[in-house]
Amino acid sequence: MYGLFLILLFYLLGCLISALIGNFVPGSVIGMVLLFAALSFKWVRPGAVKRVSTFLLDNMMLFFVPVGVGLITSYTLLSRYMLAIIVASLVSTILVIAVVGLVEQKLESKKDSAKNEKEENARTH
């Protein structure tokens, strides 16, 4: 219950800040950053939110369903722009994959990635 309280509290703080900056960034996203900061500065123990976070993230797909059913109200819009929606989304997705992959590979320091890989192997074995 304490974990749920913390998640709710950070969500509330996020919404508060979001309202103060004119809803520029969603309150939930600010809440995410605040939770991350609180964990990093050790104000909150990771163990305190681990169970509730895992529960929420494991079942995240369910939470999209009611909103998705709302498609029933925008069905005409969807069918009218079907082609534009599909082409734009798919082309843009390939661009994002390529750009992120190439930029990261170009900029990342070779030594560090080799080291990370070694550490990761040590972790998994």
Binding site: Y11, M32, L35
Partner: peptide
């Protein structure tokens, strides 16, 4: 259910950490 969506975004902060 919709409300839980907001909570799960906050929970992403835990994964990030």
């Amino acid at each position: 259910i919709d409300f839980m969506l907001g909570l799960s975004v906050v929970a992403l902060g835990y994964i990030l950490h």
